[in-house]
Design a protein around this nucleic acid. Sequence first.
DNA 1: TTGTATGCGTTATCAA
DNA 2: TTGATAACGCATACAA
Lengths: 343, 343
Amino acid sequence: MANIHDVARVAGVSISTVSYALSGKRSVSEDARRRITAAVQELGYLPNAAGRMLAGARTRILALSAPLRSDTYAPAHMAFVLAVATAARRYDYDILLLTEDEATNGLRRVTSSRLVDAVILLDVSIDDERIGLVRDLSVPSVVVGVPKDATGLICVDLDFAAAARLTIDRLAEAGHRSIALLGHPEAVYQRGSNFPHRFRNAFLDYAAEQKISAKFVMPGTSDTDVRQAVDQMLDPGDSVTGVVMHCEESIQSRALQVIAESGRSVPGDLSVISACTSFDTSHFHPPLDVIPLVAADSCDRAVALIMQALDGAAEPHVELVAPRYESRGSLGKPVQPAVPELT
Amino acid sequence: MANIHDVARVAGVSISTVSYALSGKRSVSEDARRRITAAVQELGYLPNAAGRMLAGARTRILALSAPLRSDTYAPAHMAFVLAVATAARRYDYDILLLTEDEATNGLRRVTSSRLVDAVILLDVSIDDERIGLVRDLSVPSVVVGVPKDATGLICVDLDFAAAARLTIDRLAEAGHRSIALLGHPEAVYQRGSNFPHRFRNAFLDYAAEQKISAKFVMPGTSDTDVRQAVDQMLDPGDSVTGVVMHCEESIQSRALQVIAESGRSVPGDLSVISACTSFDTSHFHPPLDVIPLVAADSCDRAVALIMQALDGAAEPHVELVAPRYESRGSLGKPVQPAVPELT
DNA sequence: TTGTATGCGTTATCAA
DNA sequence: TTGATAACGCATACAA
């Protein structure tokens, strides 16, 4: 494996000239540059990572803490991991992957040993054990998600509250006055991340504020549980005309089936919006209006912020990414409410 | 950040004694060892990764090439990534994650720069562009999956052919004579990995060998496509009494629904086996007999083989992990075939 | 059992 | 514009 000395020898210059030619931190004569470039090509030279880490202050590696909990939705999780990796490469950074076993110990290990320059935390839960740790870490960190106590942290996340309000605005504009939120299974709200809460709370608060009747239903995980939840949601007594789904793919898919089997058409009889969704809703029947959860949006910002933090100053703050609404035709006007029954 | 000199000073010994005390490569007096341990504790010393990489010949990092293709099933993919990471930690190795953009360039980059000691390739497709590369890489590599041409490579994978034969043996033992395989969507067979082929081919070959009538059906991806595939599979003319599903979760789940809606009970009217499945089939109704695709099985072996390769010799070979059958009660005896109609 | 000294490959300072 | 050289932190061969 060729090293910088080999390149210097072949190019007929000193190693410092080679180093500067490659880093561009000092001007090098056109002639020398050409010979160096040729030598690099010929030898297939790539700077030794360890040497670079030791001499420079940078390892050009980011730790990515991505524990997979039992209630984690794998496809979304994977999308975020990939988005971080892709964003990092744009800054010539690589990703060192830390999983559950290493959620805290691993973070301490790779930062104390200076293996990584900085840390990105994925999918932080309400009381995440990692949060206490990163606060007094020797390297910068950015959190994707918002923990209960975000003081001293740089956080990036989709604005779930704004997304919830956006669904209500759209439904309200279309004339709906009684709507429902099909949320995650109860367990997700109990020990999971906090975005389900942020969405649900904003949904219920804003609906009340807008004088819209809103109902919240948590489905179970089995097929029959979902059927039950949908039945409950569409109880004729409440005359719900619009539904927002904030749950994972299998539940949404199942719910749509149950709705279809009940004889309701979308959007004819019922308007449906899929909210903060990390999968493709266009293959559903019908395709659903959606506020997509774009991993790249949050992760690009997270990596950009880490780079700022590495370059000097980036103040602790919470940065919320604005939601986008995509129409696919599953939102319509509410059906004329049935004539009130005489008692 | 404390370094080895600090530890040496506090412990009142030389840095080499510290180094040897920590590595255990030379005996150190009990007295010195105690003082060194105390100093390490007091200073929170952890060896600097770069220094270690440069001086030793090891970086203690493995590259994990895990591109996510359009037809990749994210949960399974994630399970393999995590399994590799977990296995690697047992050898005090970390994982550097390489994604699609970096499938080949990234491999070249991290190996040429000596950032990683070795490489693990996940989900290799039939004609994987990465295969040509790893053959003349300067570091050892292990492939999870089996490419078309495996010469010169160390490969680890579930024995999909044995799994296919195992399903047939179980069905045959129970008395089934006409069975069907519900495979992946056609696109998966065309541009994907080769395990679907290995399973299908072994299934059809072995069924023929065992004089069992076997039918192969590829479903489309939409809900109605799956219904169509199941209908085709259970065409009364073929009197299929046993079904093996080798496809992803959403299709299996949907197929079970269609079967239930058709009025067939499992295993009363139809026996069903889920084959090489990376998700949990116990929450299905009914729970399915399954040959699980245990990511840890393959990944543990892959990492073990990489360590062997790093320690000197590991001959190129293909290592197939034996399948395991788990009964959950979805396999029964075939129903008495209907009285043949008179023409 | 312990200490000294060299080298790993790079970056960056200093001198020319 | 360039070159010599001192770090960076550790492992280890060599000496004691």
